[in-house]
Amino acid sequence: NQASVVANTLIPINTALTLVMMRSEVVTPVGIPAEDIPRLVSMTVNRAVPLGTTLMPDMVKGYA
């Protein structure tokens, strides 16, 4: 099973992502692959992402 990116904290809308905000976890449904974490750093989220939420491609500006 592939690990996905999961919010390690509440990420407010329009926040630039940092490494400490994200962790990898095997979850269903599958979200952004964990190997993309380095690429996500400094990208911003377009909605509030609660703790434990899987990051989906449409949640990160410029990812999809």
Results as ranks from 00 to 15, higher is better:
31 G>C: 03
24 S>T: 09
16 A>T: 09
63 Y>G: 04
26 V>G: 05
32 I>Q: 00
17 L>N: 00
63 Y>Q: 04
57 P>A: 14
12 P>R: 07
13 I>P: 07
8 N>E: 09
37 I>K: 05
58 D>S: 11
14 N>Y: 11
1 N>G: 15
57 P>C: 04
42 S>N: 13
58 D>G: 12
17 L>W: 02
2 Q>W: 10
44 T>M: 10
31 G>R: 01
32 I>R: 00
56 M>T: 12
45 V>D: 00
30 V>P: 11
13 I>D: 11
25 E>N: 10
29 P>N: 04
13 I>F: 15
38 P>S: 12
21 M>F: 05
56 M>L: 14
56 M>N: 06
60 V>G: 01
25 E>T: 07
64 A>T: 14
6 V>M: 06
48 A>F: 13
9 T>M: 15
32 I>F: 03
3 A>I: 07
15 T>C: 04
44 T>R: 10
6 V>G: 01
12 P>M: 09
20 V>Q: 15
59 M>E: 03
2 Q>A: 07
35 E>K: 13
60 V>C: 02
17 L>T: 00
21 M>S: 09
6 V>P: 02
17 L>G: 00
46 N>T: 15
59 M>S: 06
19 L>Y: 09
10 L>K: 13
24 S>E: 10
7 A>F: 02
26 V>Q: 12
23 R>W: 03
40 L>A: 00
39 R>I: 14
50 P>Y: 08
12 P>T: 12
14 N>R: 10
22 M>E: 01
64 A>I: 10
22 M>L: 09
54 T>P: 07
9 T>N: 09
20 V>H: 06
7 A>Q: 01
45 V>G: 00
2 Q>V: 13
55 L>A: 01
10 L>F: 14
21 M>E: 03
51 L>S: 10
17 L>Q: 00
29 P>Q: 06
61 K>C: 04
45 V>R: 00
14 N>K: 06
48 A>Y: 12
24 S>G: 11
8 N>T: 09
43 M>N: 05
30 V>L: 15
2 Q>K: 15
13 I>L: 10
15 T>A: 13
63 Y>F: 08
47 R>S: 14
46 N>W: 08
42 S>Q: 13
47 R>Y: 13
